[in-house]
């Protein structure tokens, strides 16, 4: 079988996007009534639901930190979310790593010192996975945290980027992810201008790396305006409801 052509001679990717184009993003906040903050986010065919509970009393005494809040992230992926059915959906190392990465990212951005001796729970549920699960989860968590009214330094906007035959590509999908092209995940704070997370698990030439990260960062900046629109729409809806 011939190798899949990931970039056509016209310079278009397998799903018809240009190399520097993000997938279609649709999102909504306030989707769950029980949670303090929640968001549903679709990035292409990747669908994620995030809920935030807290800040509240920690479940375990031993987890109490006397001067700040403790963030716990639960990552859960539906068995039917990907091509193959996942047999063990909980507690596998990949999920634990993802949850830990998200926790680390947000502990640096959420102003945790405002809520000493408390716990903030972020629950993530992946309904459909089509590449870029980590950035989609980070974006959804940002929306849910803002929705819950938890103070943060800035929006954490995440985006994946990769490189196919030396062409940097933005927001990679499942097919691109599963080909052996390298992929980098960037989480960026656009207002502050700082990187919150940079993750790569492949080999990438240093010259290309710079370009890929730059593209990823650009993607994050674009992502910020999209997320901001979602938050503002959610707020407007709330205002409308109050006025009625």
């Amino acid at each position: 079988m011939s190798r899949l052509e990931l970039i056509s001679p016209e310079g278009l990717r397998i799903d018809g996007r240009r190399p520097n184009e993000l997938r279609k993003l649709t999102a909504k906040v306030n989707v769950l009534s029980q949670a303090d903050g929640s968001a549903y986010l679709e990035q292409g065919n990747t669908k994620v639901l995030a809920a935030v509970y807290g800040p509240g009393e920690p479940r375990q005494r031993s987890k109490v930190v006397h001067d700040r809040s403790f963030i716990s992230v639960e990552f859960n992926i539906a068995p039917f979310s990907a091509g193959e059915r996942r047999k063990r959906t909980k507690g596998d190392k990949r999920s634990l790593e993802l949850a830990y990465t998200i926790k680390e990212t947000f502990e640096a951005v959420v102003i945790t010192t405002q809520f000493p001796r408390s716990q903030i729970n972020i629950y993530l549920q992946v309904l459909q996975a089509d590449g870029g699960t980590l950035p989609a989860c980070i974006n959804a968590s940002t929306l849910a945290l803002v929705n819950a009214g938890i103070p943060m330094l800035d929006y954490v906007c995440a985006c994946s980027a990769g490189s196919i035959e030396k062409t940097p590509i933005l927001d990679i999908n499942y097919v691109e992810e599963s080909s052996d092209s390298p992929d980098v995940t960037v989480a960026y704070l656009p207002k502050v201008g700082k990187v919150a997370l940079l993750q790569m698990e492949a080999r990438l030439h240093i010259d290309v790396f710079e370009k890929v990260v730059a593209l990823g960062t650009d993607g994050c900046i674009e992502m910020r305006s999209k997320l901001d629109t979602v938050i503002r729409q959610g707020m407007q809806q709330l205002v409308n409801q109050l006025e009625q």
């Binding site: 769950l32 029980q34 949670a35 639901l49 995030a50 809920a51 509970y53 639960e74 859960n76 539906a78 068995p79 959906t89 909980k90 507690g91 629950y123 993530l124 549920q125």
Partner: peptide
């Protein structure tokens, strides 16, 4: 058939098995 109560569903739902 299987029913999974994802931790997201309710504040009292606990993660784990």
């Amino acid at each position: 058939p299987n029913l999974e109560l994802a931790p997201i569903c309710h504040p009292s739902a606990r993660p784990g098995p």
